[in-house]
Write a protein that binds this DNA or RNA. Sequence first.
DNA 1: TGTACATCAGTGAACGCGCGTTCACTGATGTAC
DNA 2: TGTACATCAGTGAACGCGCGTTCACTGATGTAC
Lengths: 190, 190
Amino acid sequence: MRKSKAETAETREYILTTAALVFRRDGIADTSLSDVMHAAGLTHGGFYRHFQSKEQLVSEALQKSFDISFDGLEAAATGKHADEAVSALVNYYLSPKRRDNFQDACPLAALGSDLRHGDAETRGVATVGWQRLIGILQSKFDGLTAREARIRATAMASTMVGSMMLSRILEDTAASNALLKDTREFLAHR
Amino acid sequence: MRKSKAETAETREYILTTAALVFRRDGIADTSLSDVMHAAGLTHGGFYRHFQSKEQLVSEALQKSFDISFDGLEAAATGKHADEAVSALVNYYLSPKRRDNFQDACPLAALGSDLRHGDAETRGVATVGWQRLIGILQSKFDGLTAREARIRATAMASTMVGSMMLSRILEDTAASNALLKDTREFLAHR
DNA sequence: TGTACATCAGTGAACGCGCGTTCACTGATGTAC
DNA sequence: TGTACATCAGTGAACGCGCGTTCACTGATGTAC
C-alpha cells in the first residue's frame, strides 16, 4: 500500500490542516491522535509515518493555524489604509462568524491558556504568532511614534484575543454577540 | 477513622481551595484527581466522600477561584473613587506578581479556553464570574451613560483577561513584563 | 527499457500507563436507648 | 449519663477504559542493474 512521494506529502499536509482545525475547535487535551487521523480519513496507526509525537503535531498544527488565520486577517485589510484598515481588521477578527467557524479562528483565542502548557517549541511558535498579530495592527497605524504604535497594537491585540476567547465561553448567543459588538465599538472609537 | 462533622466540612473546603489553585496553575485536563488529593494531603480514594465527580469539583473550584480572585480585586480599589479606583484595579489585575502567583489569579485568564469545554454548570459559573468582573469595573466609572459604561467595562475586562493570559504564554520574562506594562499604560490613558 | 529487490505508507492489533471511579476495610464519631 | 450499635471519612487496591506509542503485515512505489 505504499504511496508515491507526492501523495505522502499531500497526506502529511492534510493531517496538519485537519489537526489545526480540530485542535482549535475541540482543544488539544480533548483531541486524541485517533480523533485527528479519523477526521483526516485515516487510521491512527499511520500517524508515526509522518510525525514523531503528538507534541510535534501540536507544534506544527499551531504554526499552520497561525498561517491560515492571519493570512485571512491580512487579506481583510489589503488595499485599505490607516483607520479604515484598522476597522476592517477589528471587525473581521471579532465577527460572530469567526467565533463560530474554527476554520480560520485565531489560535491564541481558541487555544489560549492551553498554549502555556505546551513544550518549548509550541510556546515559541505561539510567541512568533503573537508578534505577527501585533505587527499586522501596528503597520496600519498612522501618525504615531513607534512607542505609541507598539502600546496601541499590544493593547488592541490583547483586547481582540480576550474578547473572542470570552465570547466562546458564554452559552447565551445574544450575550456573546453583545460582548463582541461592545468590543468592536470600543476599539473603533479609539 | 471517621472524622467529626466539623472536620469533614473543613476537609471539603480545603480540597476545594487546593483544587482552585492547582487547576488554575496547571490546567484542568493536566490535573488528575490524585494530583488534587495529594496536594491536599489526602489519598485519592477519599475524593468521592466529598464530591460526585471530577466535573463537580471543577465547577465548585471555579466558583471558589472567582471568589478568591475577585474579592482580592475589589479590595484593591476600596476607598478609592473614579479614575483612581480604575487605575488601582488595572494595576492590581495586570501585575507581574499576579501573573506568577496563581493563588489569587483570575480563572478567566488562567483557564481561559478550557472553560469553553466545561459542562453547562461550569460554563454558567464562568458566565456569572465574567459578569462580576464587568460589574466591578463599571461601578467605578464616573460621568458615563449606562451604555458607555457597559461598553467600556466590557472592553477593559476583555483587554485585562487577554493580556494576562497572553503574558503567561511568553517564555521571555522581559517581553511578558513589557506586554503587561503596555496594556496597563493603554488602559490608564483612556 | 525491463526486471528484481528494497522501501515504506497505511492497517489494525497490541502494549503499558494513568485516568476517573468503585469497593472492602478500618476505626473513630454519631445516635438511640 | 453510659452503653451498644450504626455510620461514614479516609485508605489503598482494583476496575475498565482510552490514551500515546509500537509493531507485524500488506502491497504499491522507488531504485539498482
